[in-house]
């Protein structure tokens, strides 16, 4: 039982990392209908860049987090402006492939600029050990989990209550009608990229805190895919929930069945789920007319 509880806890922690990325997927998809295949790479780039800035000003953790949010927002706006906006009107395949192109460029640039060695963040949080019954958790893990819960709640509240969030939902639902109601759809789409990249920046800091920074940390973007799909790509809170499920399933399957299953258990789950519900667990079914 102790083993089980610890596996669930470690799944929860990795699930929260997947979840932060998955929220990024969902925010962009909900507003623009584009899946950003570069989400993991954006996370990596934002983290490396803010790390560089953070080392320069000798920033403590809270400042590093703030820097990551600012850098992430700016970088997201830049990506949207330079790569995505000129592609509006092209087929979805072209836009997705543009994000794939961005992904491989970023993946190549990081080791060229910052080298291939992995480095952990030195924060006082790391050394503190907390016990919850049979479960042991480190301070940094609890910190990541708390951030994840806070950001999920904030994302839900943003789309539910704020004026901008409601406008984003309107734009996603019917772009033309939203335009006629005086909503600046282009600006909202840019904003969604900023939000998603800022959340990715937070995810990057959490990842570096729990594991380390490394030029292959983009792979967590792939782990977050099944999470976002499972919850339904157009639902940020659903994606967060999907991430928790995928994280726990990954941890349990590796703990009980076999080594290496962690990477693929999420994908096995979504193949099964998509067979039954082709739009994810919480996604809205799209109707198509001839």
């Amino acid at each position: 039982m102790d083993y089980f509880a610890n596996l669930v806890a470690s799944g929860l922690i990795f699930g929260s990392l997947y979840g932060l990325i998955a929220i990024g997927f969902a925010v962009i998809y909900k507003t623009t209908g584009v899946v950003n295949f570069a989400q993991g790479e954006v996370m990596m780039f934002v983290l490396y860049f803010s790390w560089m800035v953070g080392t320069f000003v000798a920033a403590p953790l809270w400042l590093l987090l703030l820097i990551a949010i600012v850098v992430g927002g700016a970088f997201g706006a830049l990506l949207e402006r330079v790569f995505i906006r000129p592609m509006i009107g092209q087929s979805q395949f072209s836009i997705i492939m543009t994000t794939v192109g961005v992904a491989i460029v970023l993946r190549g640039l990081v080791p060229i600029f910052w080298g291939v060695e992995s480095e952990p963040i030195d924060a006082p949080l790391k050394s503190q050990l907390y016990e919850f019954g049979p479960v042991m958790m480190l301070g940094d893990q609890i910190f990541a989990l708390a951030l994840f819960v806070a950001i999920s709640a904030a994302a839900w509240a943003f789309f539910r209550f704020s004026r901008v969030g409601v406008a984003m939902r309107a734009a996603a639902h019917d772009e033309t009608a939203a335009l006629l109601m005086g909503i600046n759809v282009r600006r909202l789409q840019g904003l969604s990229w900023m939000i998603a990249s800022a959340v990715s920046g937070v995810a990057g800091v959490c990842y570096a805190l729990i594991v380390a920074r490394a030029p292959d940390m983009w792979q967590i973007g792939f782990q977050a895919f099944p999470a976002a799909i499972l919850g339904g790509l157009d639902s940020p809170l659903g994606s967060a929930f999907g991430a928790v499920v995928v994280g726990i399933a990954a941890s349990l399957s590796e703990g009980y069945i076999g080594y290496g299953l962690k990477e693929i258990s999420g994908f096995v789950i979504i193949i099964a789920v998509l067979m039954v519900r082709p739009y994810g667990l919480f996604g809205e079914k799209e109707l198509e007319r001839v």
Binding site: M97, V105, R107, G108
Partner: peptide
């Protein structure tokens, strides 16, 4: 030196840039 040490990275970057450029100017 950068060229020889990061052959695979440069190749990836060039491929990525090419995909983006092709999609933009010549769909």
């Amino acid at each position: 030196e950068t060229g020889s040490a990061h052959v695979f990275e440069i190749r990836a970057v060039v491929t990525g840039v090419l995909i983006i450029v092709m999609l933009r100017i010549e769909p």
